[in-house]
Design a protein around this nucleic acid. Sequence first.
DNA 1: TCTATATACCTAATAAACCTAGGTAGGTGA
DNA 2: TCACCTACCTAGGTTTATTAGGTATATAGA
Lengths: 115, 115
Amino acid sequence: MFNRELVKGSTSLLLLQMLGDRDMYGYELVKELEARSGNGFTVKEGTLYPALHKLEKQEYIECYWQEQEKGPARKYYRITDEGRELLKEKTREWQDFVQMMNKMIGRTDHGTAEE
Amino acid sequence: MFNRELVKGSTSLLLLQMLGDRDMYGYELVKELEARSGNGFTVKEGTLYPALHKLEKQEYIECYWQEQEKGPARKYYRITDEGRELLKEKTREWQDFVQMMNKMIGRTDHGTAEE
DNA sequence: TCTATATACCTAATAAACCTAGGTAGGTGA
DNA sequence: TCACCTACCTAGGTTTATTAGGTATATAGA
């Protein structure tokens, strides 16, 4: 759909946001993000797992294993208090960024940009 | 201000946007972006020049030298027709992306998710 | 039994974008 | 002469995401 480049830098925000709602495991996050975005994009496993590990190392999230009656065990992630702080901050940053971008790309009409 | 990470991927959009308004030279773009963003961020020269060269190679912009009465000559960049097409497309992508992100992170206080 | 598929985890190698930290050169003013 | 501003440039390193695999559990079908 749109350029995956744009998403750079927003992955951790997305992950924290998801975990802010409820504890989730990696594979679930991949599927959920794919579903929520309406096929807009997907966060690949090769992106997700390293990102989760980094957030965990920084103590913004923590994990626990949960055995399943059927299928492989799941590694659930839970957001920490520091994580919630970071989430708030990142959300604010995102909103500021959007505002600035809109100021930059929104104010010119060089080519009739109405839908 | 906000995380520079977020800007990654939007640099070429910003450049095309600026050049969509008028021809500009590299150094001018750096200063102008800095001013417009209200100190939000700066595009470094080490980012800008390679980005311009890439856009030129892809024929989205083209350049011409202009001698100055005082000071070093300036290398002006002009957006091409293909560039304008790309700009429209990238602007649309940006708007889609923002829409999706807002859908995902929009409800800033989790727990109350009514529409 | 053997194989394919789905779930669920992971990483090494690569690619892309950016930043750091320089360099070259013209011109002005102390 | 030296410092500073304008104006161009790039090599090397970092970060982030993707590609393209791998391991393991469990089930369904040939």
